[in-house]
């Protein structure tokens, strides 16, 4: 509850932030890495939405993609492997005034962090999650990840991987309380930005899987898709992504898909070739966990102390007189 005056004054002297105000350092990613495209799109989003750097936080796990917070001049938390989401949930719960973003890779999210991922979808806390999916462990120099295609030869699968790749979209769409699922590819920056922007504006757990090239370890994996626009299917809708005329001329393989239709979304999610790009599912009605658990109770020192004392007392052994 702010009075009209404080609300106006807070906005009145807000400084205009340029894209450079969100840049921090020179990314240490390899030249040609798709992470650069994601970073450019996200910095553009921050500028266009004029997010206050001190009210914005990027949280990551471990991996190439998880270096992301280092390159944003905002708050950041380069966490531990697979645990970006629990950290983000804690931040969200304690600081509802922050814009929370999560960067996680295919290994970080779909392997070691898979349990947290599934429950984070169910909690549906308001945050934007980027799954940087390059289908390989890059930081540790080429080991197969859960999303690596079957037959991929890597340091851990020298005879080719034996299992079908995991589909992050179908997993996400299968979890109760899912509220926003989209897919982007790093080589169509215009759509990448539109999808990131839509995800940010959705209130709830916005999950974007970004299909991303790794020029170092899998330089030719996406070549066929990159050079044949027919192998990318754009999902468009009045309530979803609208494709610009220029883009529509290059990418003619399009589908009119209503993001409220979860059954069709699940069918689309199963499709590997052509790669679907756009918003698969969006349901703003799903309640957010932080709202369900909201309390008017002030966390005063006294309140926290009493709570802790009560917990400790449960385990205290009192010396018999």
């Amino acid at each position: 509850m702010a009075t009209a005056a404080s609300h106006c004054l807070l906005r009145l002297y807000e400084e205009r932030h340029e894209l450079e105000d969100y840049q921090s350092g020179v990314p240490r990613w390899c030249t040609g890495c798709g992470d650069n495209a994601i970073l450019a799109a996200v910095q553009r989003l921050c500028r266009d939405e004029q997010l206050r750097p001190e009210k914005t936080v990027f949280i990551s796990g471990i991996g190439c993609s998880s270096r992301f917070p280092h390159y944003m001049k905002t708050y950041g938390f380069h966490g531990i492997h697979g645990r970006a989401l629990p950290v983000a949930e804690g931040v969200r719960m304690a600081r509802k005034d922050l814009h929370v973003f999560v960067n996680t890779g295919d290994g970080d999210c779909c392997s070691i962090g898979a349990a947290h991922w599934v429950h984070a979808i169910r909690y549906n806390m308001n945050m934007t999650v980027f799954l940087h999916d390059n289908q390989i462990y890059g930081l540790t120099k080429m080991q197969a990840s859960p999303t690596s295609p079957r037959g991929l030869r890597s340091n851990t699968t020298p005879r080719g991987s034996f299992l079908e790749a995991m589909q992050p979209l179908t997993v996400t769409l299968g979890v109760q309380n899912v509220s926003f699922v989209a897919q982007a590819v790093d080589w169509i920056p215009e759509l990448l930005y539109d999808i990131v922007s839509a995800a940010y504006r959705h209130r709830g757990f916005s999950f974007i899987r970004i299909v991303q090239r790794c020029p170092e370890w899998l330089p030719s994996l996406f070549e066929p898709w990159l050079h044949d626009p027919e192998r990318v299917r754009l999902l468009h809708h009045e309530d979803g992504i609208q494709v610009s005329p220029a883009l529509a001329r290059v990418y003619r393989n399009q589908e009119h898909h209503n993001p409220v239709d979860i059954d069709r979304a699940r069918e689309i999610a199963s499709c590997i070739d052509p790669i679907p790009v756009g918003i698969l599912y969006r349901n703003p009605q799903v309640p957010c966990y932080e709202d369900l658990r909201a309390t008017d109770h002030l966390r005063t020192t006294e309140f926290i102390k009493n709570g802790l004392e009560a917990e400790f007392d449960k385990f205290t052994v009192w010396p018999s007189a």
Partner: peptide, 12 residues
């Protein structure tokens, strides 16, 4: 330009 993916190849 609109299709550039900011991969730094050319700027390097």
């Amino acid at each position: 330009t609109p299709r550039c993916t900011t991969c730094n190849e050319c700027t390097q």
